[in-house]
Design a protein around this nucleic acid. Sequence first.
RNA 1: GGUCUGUUGGUGAAGCGGUUAACACAUUGCCCUCUCAAGGCAACAUUCAUGGGUUCAAAUCCCAUACAGAUCACCA
Length: 554
Amino acid sequence: MTNQELADLIFPNITKTILDYEEMYPKRDLKEGAKVVRFAPSPTGFMHIGNMMSATINYVLAKSSDGVFYLRNEDTDQSRSVDGAVEFIYHTLNHYGLNPDEYEFNGKVVGNYGPYIQSERIEIYHTFIKHLISIGRAYPCFLTSSELDEIREYQSKSKKRIGIYGRYAKFRDVSNEEKAERIRNGEKFTIRFRSEGDFNQKFVFEDLTKGKIEMPLNDIDVPIMKSENLLPTYHFAHVVDDHLMRTTHVVRGEEWMSSIPLHYELFKSFGFKMPKYIHTSLILKKDGDTIRKISKRKDPEALMFYYEEKGYPALAVIDAVMTIANSNFEEWRSNHSDAPFYEFPFSPKKMSSSGALFDLDKLDNISKNIISKMKAKDVYQEYLDWAKEYDDHIYSLISQYKEDTIAFLNIEREVKKPRKDYENYSSIFPKTWYLYDEEWDRDLVYDFKNIKGKEEITSIMTEYLEHYYKEDDTEEEWFSKIKDLCSKMGYAADMKEFKENPGKFKGNVADFTTAIRVVLTTSSMTPNLYDIMKIFGHDRMIKRLEKFEEKYFG
RNA sequence: GGUCUGUUGGUGAAGCGGUUAACACAUUGCCCUCUCAAGGCAACAUUCAUGGGUUCAAAUCCCAUACAGAUCACCA
């Protein structure tokens, strides 16, 4: 029995040839140097920061070369697939502006190289497997899982290399007649690649970030098709898909590095050119004294949900990821503060070859800078969008007090050196709640620092409101009045004077304004008092004073 | 155990045979200041995992050791 006959027996319904697919998916007509890249997650878990980094790098590579960025759903492991994972991937790419040029979602296919969902490509895989069987480079293998276990156990006990190779590849040289017989008897089988490599020979592989690496040739007969669902394994799908979709650059995690010898041989067996590879190092996490791979279970910040829930601006997350990917991104960013991130000249060579810790402090810093440069109304809008999704109470408050909220967010904004108070939208409310009258029902804690004596505080406030406050004072007028009243009541209006002679005064301007500030906000740490008073206006200040008296005088 | 990769301060890192070992974040201190935030100025690795070697000269080249990580599934 010939190999071709065996192939026909296994795949009787496959009539196309690999040449048919070559014609169906011709070389892409792109300009010289254009990169074709893909983001190819498997829906076995939710999108995490490592995926995000890979997607971002892919996007930059495609955009900066006028290439193509496509999305491929690697769903060949259907038993482990997680509900909602696919939706979340689309949502996340969209949220961060990493929209693919080609994709397939909810029955809609965009692009000429699909299907973009692996489970829909089964006929293609079978055609390619059939081809391999017909040329003697693949064969059905009837090893059961318990036999496989035995082999593995023996190998590890006797310290031999683990895997189905050489004499362990029991069905490699069994006659086609016997194989056909077993198939006709309904025996389950997997299709294995028939390796021709010699483990003692080396070849040189060039990774775009790690450089030249010497590796042994593959000699393992790996499964390329699973017996259960007849879907290909990752390795085989990678070769077929990235060839047919004309991928030029594969960006994937470092954990794939060690299957390079296999992929190398697989591509060679078809006579296909290998794409270029960028193996990215893992994102690590410091856990006490040890450093380990970031974990979806232990580290909330590993999953992309975290950043949306906290309300980080999408750009901040992208910039933080880019900073890890290429450390010179930061410098570029400071010189091109308004340029889209994909204009950054990303270089795979500049990627760190050791794993990086994802630094949340750094993210906060990047994010504070980004938010500080936004216009108040834009901050408000994003804050509102965030609240709508995650906090009904805040949402209704800030909708109701839109003008006040924007005015508050505008304090010391749009100046050369704007305030950097907020690292994300969830951190705004804890710092601004006192703006809203409704919030003053809570158990109030006033933090007065140096000013002691509630009568003193009340008289400062009363005095100020009755005789000094004027709605349309400029900031200069306002402050000189504060100083006047301040010295009239025995406080030093001038800080230097106070420092030279502290014993002469009850306190200084700072203490004096603290009293006002805390009555109005309960906090000694707020933005510019003048601006806050402007927002409040006379009546609300009176109300705040009443609140204060209620609390301390009953 | 096999195969690969990596190791520069608290973190991310620059560095590519001769540098006071950049820069950013964090931290600390001072200044400025109505508080805060910001800003300004400082401090923070005598040393580049360790041990050898090459060299007039090494974080940079070579070798060994240690440690860390990845992988060795009909998971991706």
